[in-house]
Amino acid sequence: MPLPPDRLLRAYRQMKTIREFEERLHVEIQTGEIPGFTHLYSGQEAVAVGVCEHLGDADWIASTHRGHGHCIAKGCDVTGMMLEIYGRRDGLCKGKGGSMHIADMSKGMLGANAIVGGGPPIAVGAAIACKARRDGKVAVAFGGDGSCNQGTVFEAMNLAVVLKAPAIFVFEDNGYSEHTGADYAVGSRDIAGRARGFGMPAETCDGSDFFAVHAAMARALELARNGGGPSTIEAKTTRFFGHFEGDPMLYRAKDEVARHRETMDCLRIFRARVTTEGLLDDAALDAVDAEVMGLIDRSVAAARSAAPPTAADLLTDVYVSY
């Protein structure tokens, strides 16, 4: 069933917001004002949005170190995120988490997670809780091609099958486990095949195509919400920046990113399709672009002028003090 125009426009807005958030961070990081390590999601937007457009605040996701896209797609406040990344007191986690650890329980966002393979077992646990409560909700475990080699992920996948948990594993194969090629590090390079080995349905889709991801997620959700247990989506995608900001990317061909920006840009692909099919027009999409640019401008301005935490905040949110 085709999505109505308002839903299409919302999906585009989400993808565009992620893109501009990341492209802007790439610039702002060079000012030295942003502490810590940052891993940008540009290029992979169709995966986060294709999946999360199906979810509500009461569904759960567990994210990765490359988590900004998942946060935005799940509805986290963009300015709150920017403040968090800048280490401000009014950030989503009071500045205690930072880019790699943004979490927002009110949005069902269990957390970005800088431990590769850290998230999937937690997502399975959240899914088991959904099943126990019979609330009809699901949990999604996002991971990269790197995470599909971690033992924790295998344990989570088997547990989900054994307990028929309403969990959906989304592996974003962007070609690189940090700085090492997935063609080297992922034996067989067939993540969906591995998932089937655990006894769950799995499919591979074009992660640059919002519609392909969205359709795959619809099938996974149908299964999870009707007692069919877990399934896996393997989305083939790319990242437009390095593993982390500052990565010289010596392991990629010099023109690879430029080529992928030409051929694998999910925003371009989306726009081409919806305008060709007459679902949306350029004017509406351009208006979203302008709106998003304004939002990102305002969030950066807010973050730059926001107050840092005080030293007293350091020892709050602990449950044992000596």
Binding site: P35, G91, C93, K96, G98, H101, L314, V318, V320
Partner: peptide, 8 residues
């Protein structure tokens, strides 16, 4: 005795 914070 806390996790290592981002902002401090």
């Amino acid at each position: 005795d806390t996790p290592y914070p981002h902002a401090f």
